[in-house]
Simulated scan of single mutants.
Amino acid sequence: MGTTGIAAINPKFLESMAGKTPFLKRMFTVFISQEPKRLEAIRDALETRDVEKLRHLAHALKGGAATMGVERVRDCCLLLENASKASDMDAARTHLRDLETEMRRAYAFMFNYLAEH
Rank of each mutant, 00 (worst) to 15 (best):
T4V: 03
G5L: 06
G5K: 10
G5Y: 11
I6Y: 04
A7I: 09
A7W: 09
A8W: 11
N10I: 13
P11R: 02
K12Y: 08
K12Q: 12
F13T: 01
L14M: 12
L14W: 05
L14I: 11
E15F: 00
S16M: 15
M17K: 01
G19Y: 12
K20N: 15
P22D: 02
F23Y: 13
L24I: 07
K25W: 00
K25G: 02
K25T: 11
K25P: 02
M27S: 05
T29A: 01
V30G: 02
V30T: 13
V30W: 01
V30M: 05
F31L: 07
F31W: 10
F31N: 07
Q34R: 11
E35L: 03
E35Y: 12
E35K: 09
E35S: 12
P36V: 07
L39D: 04
E40R: 08
E40P: 01
A41T: 03
I42V: 10
A45R: 04
A45V: 03
D50E: 10
V51S: 12
H56R: 15
L57H: 06
A58D: 00
A58E: 05
H59Q: 15
A60F: 01
A60Y: 02
K62I: 02
G63V: 07
G64S: 13
A66P: 09
T67D: 13
V70S: 14
E71T: 11
E71Q: 07
E71K: 08
R72A: 15
V73L: 10
R74L: 04
D75L: 13
D75I: 10
C77M: 00
L78V: 10
L78D: 03
N82Q: 13
S84H: 08
S84Y: 09
S87N: 10
D90W: 00
D90H: 04
A91W: 07
A91P: 06
A92M: 09
R93D: 13
T94K: 12
H95E: 12
H95I: 03
D98G: 12
E100I: 03
E100M: 03
E102M: 12
E102F: 11
M103D: 05
M103Y: 14
M103S: 06
A106N: 00
Y107G: 01
A108M: 06
A108F: 08
F109W: 13
M110L: 02
N112T: 06
L114S: 01
L114Q: 05
A115Y: 14
